[in-house]
Design a protein around this nucleic acid. Structure first.
Length: 485
RNA sequence: GGCGACGUAGCCAAGUGGUAAGGCAGAGGUCUGCAAAACCUCCAUCCAGCGGUUCGAAUCCGCUCGUCGCCUCCA
């Protein structure tokens, strides 16, 4: 069965065929490093992490490029506010971003290029465009690209230049020939960090960096280009215009993949009215990745994100993670060392139960692949994982062989791993580790009470701990406990 | 204002022409000292509303209502 992927450019699902057999070139827009990333940024990273992992599961080698925009107005402002060098700002947030992505189990990209380390290439590209007459230095020192020099301008957004112009609300920049033109090079104001160029001191515009880096690290044409849906216009539209103008090759990108945006509740401080809007630093309805990591198992966010299709918008609520945590726990409990999963090398077991489990294991893989082949349908893929969890638990209870149980659990771990879920690491609830010895003491004490059939007292211990947020479970081979709100 | 996306059970969410996956919550049952977990059963005659096409539509078309996004930095 063929892998299908939706393409923003064509507006439909297409068969996935790479330029070079066996290799996927993928460019994903990273973040502008002027502040801490929020879980909306993480959502995008997680989305493309899963897409990448599935390509690899399907046998592709993936060349994965994620850029850092490390120079722009906000970075300069931040540096001025803190009275530090702009570079110390970007270094701080790049390191933080990478640390956080590691914690979220996002695979490292092949390359993380930075705009300021690609300035020579950017200037060369702009020069080519200017020489060709498709870009022009303006009176204010900026260099602009003539958007309409590309005949297909607007194709990604599915709007004609006329429609794009008609919709424009912004004041027309005097220096531009046409309001759709966009900056390739921005002239430096006094005191701003700058690089020397044929058009004077300045810095690269935002759009050109991605074109130049994508071409440098992946070639004139690439397979997949990803990013948040908010980047479709103008950022990605402009990338297409520049890149195709530079290389003369079309299409610049075979498959444009955009993830839906994370939304969050926002309460108006004046009216007290709540609304749901895109999670955004400027709106102030964000949850930073750092905060999330303090909340417990980082896989929670992944589970939450993967629970809806990547193209659809997703709304974050306070309860989101409770549900995600519970479902995560349901899956991961299959790897609990406290359950009796039998001897992996034992083929003895009830034939019927063993056969049913083996059948279910195969069906889970088939169903998982079919779901993922269909434009990375992770909600459907996860549903197949839940089916397998049920069959594994059933197999354990009905006497399937140790070997079949082991194989089924390994399959679950492998498929979960394709989604980036750390299946064999038990879910970590939030809660203080300091209380562990005290809880252990109480659990041991309660065991003695149970042995002595002092059930009333044993139950008092359990109830008391529950009120304190510690939940006890008596399993066949002992008592487990965990934090629970 | 222009363009686009979406609207499925109490909640989250798959399903793009053949008669509604999965998770959470809820109800009943098995097991257990009890509870929890696990397992079994139940839980949308119906997919925002109204028309239309079709033997047949949640799925296609039109209109209405609602939500969100982009058009400005943005994952």
């Amino acid at each position: 069965m063929a892998l299908k992927i939706s393409n923003t450019l064509s507006g439909r699902k297409e068969d996935f065929v790479t330029i070079e057999p066996g290799i996927v070139t993928m460019y994903v827009c990273g973040v502008t490093v002027y502040a801490s990333s929020h879980i909306g940024h993480a959502m995008s990273a997680l989305t493309f992490d899963v897409i990448r992992r599935y390509f690899e599961y399907r046998g592709y080698t993936v060349r994965h490029v994620v850029n850092f925009t490390d120079i722009d107005d906000k970075i300069i402002k931040r540096a001025n506010d803190e009275k530090v060098d702009w570079k110390s700002i970007t270094e701080r947030y790049i390191k933080e971003y990478l640390d956080w992505m590691d914690a979220l189990n996002v695979k490292r990209a092949t390359v993380y290029p930075r705009a300021t380390e690609e300035v020579d290439g950017i200037i060369a590209a702009i020069q080519t465009l200017v020489e060709r007459g498709n870009a022009y230095p303006a009176t204010n020192g900026d260099v602009y690209f003539r958007a309409l020099s590309q005949p297909n301008y607007g194709a990604l957004k599915h709007q004609s230049p006329d429609e794009l112009n008609a919709g424009a609300r912004i004041d027309i920049d005097e220096a531009k020939e046409n309001p759709l033109d966009f900056a390739l090079w921005k002239a430096a104001k006094p005191g701003e960090p700058s690089w020397t160029s044929p058009w004077g001191e300045g810095r690269p515009g935002w759009h050109i960096e991605c074109s130049v880096m994508a071409m440098r690290y992946l070639g004139p044409q690439i397979d997949v280009h990803g990013g948040g849906a908010d980047l479709i216009f103008p950022h990605h539209e402009n990338e297409i215009a520049q890149s195709e103008n530079l290389t003369g090759e079309r299409p610049f990108v075979r498959y444009w993949a955009h993830n839906g945006l994370l939304q969050a509740k926002l309460v108006d401080p004046d009216t007290g009215k709540a609304s749901v809007e895109k999670m955004s630093k400027s709106l102030g309805n964000t949850l930073s990745v750092g905060k999330l990591l303090e909340m417990g198992d980082p896989d929670m966010l992944r589970m939450f994100v993967l629970g809806s299709h990547y193209r659809n918008p997703l709304t974050y609520t306070d309860e989101s993670f409770d549900v995600a945590f519970k479902s995560l726990e349901r899956i991961k409990s299959v790897f609990s060392p406290r359950e009796n999963w039998g001897d992996p090398s034992s083929n003895t077991g009830k034939a019927e139960a063993t056969a049913a489990l083996e059948q279910a294991t195969g069906a889970a893989r088939t169903g998982f692949e079919a779901a993922m082949d269909d434009d990375f349908n992770t909600p459907a893929a996860i549903a197949r994982l839940f089916d397998l969890v049920r069959e594994i638990n059933k197999g354990r209870d009905t006497g399937a062989s140790g070997a079949a149980l082991y194989a089924a659990r390994e399959t679950l771990a492998e498929l979960g791993g394709v989604l980036g879920l750390r299946m064999k690491e038990l879910p970590v609830s939030s809660g203080s580790q300091d209380v562990e010895p005290f809880v252990k003491l109480l659990v041991d004490l309660r065991k003695e009470l149970k042995t002595a059939k002092q059930y009333q007292l044993a139950d008092r211990v359990r109830e008391g701990l529950k009120d304190l947020g510690v939940k006890l479970e008596d399993r066949p081979d002992g008592t487990t406990w965990k934090f629970e709100k």
